[in-house]
């Protein structure tokens, strides 16, 4: 597999405090990559190093196979968590300035800017000052500024915070479109719903260390507990409950939403058990109305991993 970004054994210390302890990551090309971790885990430190805002104490970073250098600045787009623009500068002028800092020529920047303004229906804002815009409007400008120079790698730190649902959706669609056009996107977030929805790969950073990395499904598979949520109308309720207690299946009463009022259990398979064996067993004892594997959510994995340490 080709990787757009490889982080190899990066260490960063601030005085006595270790912000990143030997962290390695591989971000596949064309993916949406979720960089997860609680506050203070080291996500921002890592992102700053990728953006060459700070330098790592040791370790190296490869962008598209090349060692990261100032020439790569134009290939990366970064939207920090703390959004900011010059308040008293006009929208168009400001976007042009920031794009030119990324290495775009003025005419090219203008062309791109017109494209995006058209696309997001914000054409009338060109000569407005940021301080005249609402927070959500300013966020849109911030997004445009981030993607204007058509970077290969986009880094969004908490991209949806501050957007209303309509605009958040709009931005989400734009991000997916950018991915389809070949850009790679790194999300840094602790909002798990968006991760489930968008990310192909995830990495979990906690207390300066990387704990998990991989395809989201691989990670989930690794964290699966072989637990099934089962809805059943037993032929003989007492008999069934007594019987299942003698088996290797670990069961407990649980609750989930169904239409009927059946017995709801969560059943964990024994080491060697398979789902079809379980289903067969259940069918012998009643009408199975519901049978779903309980897949760990990213949130579960996150909380489980973080609280272990």
């Amino acid at each position: 597999m080709e990787y757009i970004l490889e982080v190899n054994n990066v260490v960063k210390q601030y005085g006595d405090y270790t912000a990143l302890n030997n962290v390695s990551l591989k971000v596949p090309k064309g993916s949406i990559y979720g960089l997860l971790g609680p506050n203070g885990a080291g996500k921002t430190s890592l992102i700053r190093i990728i953006n060459q805002i700070t330098m790592p104490d040791s370790g190296e970073i490869l962008l598209d196979g090349e060692k990261l250098s100032p020439d790569h600045i134009g290939h990366i787009g970064y939207m920090p968590e703390e959004r900011g623009l010059y308040k008293s500068m006009k929208v168009g002028e400001q976007a042009l300035y920031l794009a030119q800092l990324k290495g775009l020529s003025k005419t090219e920047a203008k062309k791109q800017l017109e494209y995006w303004f058209e696309k997001l229906e914000i054409k009338g804002w060109w000569n407005k000052k940021i301080q005249e815009l609402s927070k959500g409007m300013a966020q849109k400008i911030q997004f445009v500024v981030t993607v204007l120079h058509q970077p290969k790698l986009l880094i969004f730190d908490e991209p949806f915070s501050g957007f209303d649902p309509v605009n958040a959706n709009l931005i989400k669609d734009e991000i997916l479109e950018l991915r389809d056009k070949g850009a790679t996107i790194i999300f840094s977030t602790h909002r798990m719903e968006s991760v489930e929805e968008l990310c192909d790969d995830i990495a979990l950073i906690h207390k300066s260390n990387k704990l998990i990395e991989g395809k989201i499904n691989d990670v989930k598979r690794e964290y699966r507990t072989n637990t099934f949520e089962v809805g059943i109308v037993p032929f003989n309720l007492q008999g069934f409950l007594a019987n299942i207690a003698t088996t290797e299946y670990k069961s407990e009463k649980t609750d989930f939403k169904t239409l009927d009022d059946e017995l709801k259990l969560s059943i964990t398979l024994p080491q060697a058990g398979t789902s079809s064996q379980l289903l067969k067993y259940l069918m012998e004892h009643g009408n199975v109305t519901y049978f779903v594997e309980k897949i760990p959510s990213v949130n579960d994995i996150f909380i489980k991993t973080v609280s272990q340490i």
Partner: peptide, 12 residues
């Protein structure tokens, strides 16, 4: 304004 982080991701 917090624009600083955007600027210094482009220039030294």
């Amino acid at each position: 304004n917090r624009i600083i982080e955007i600027i210094i991701s482009s220039v030294k």
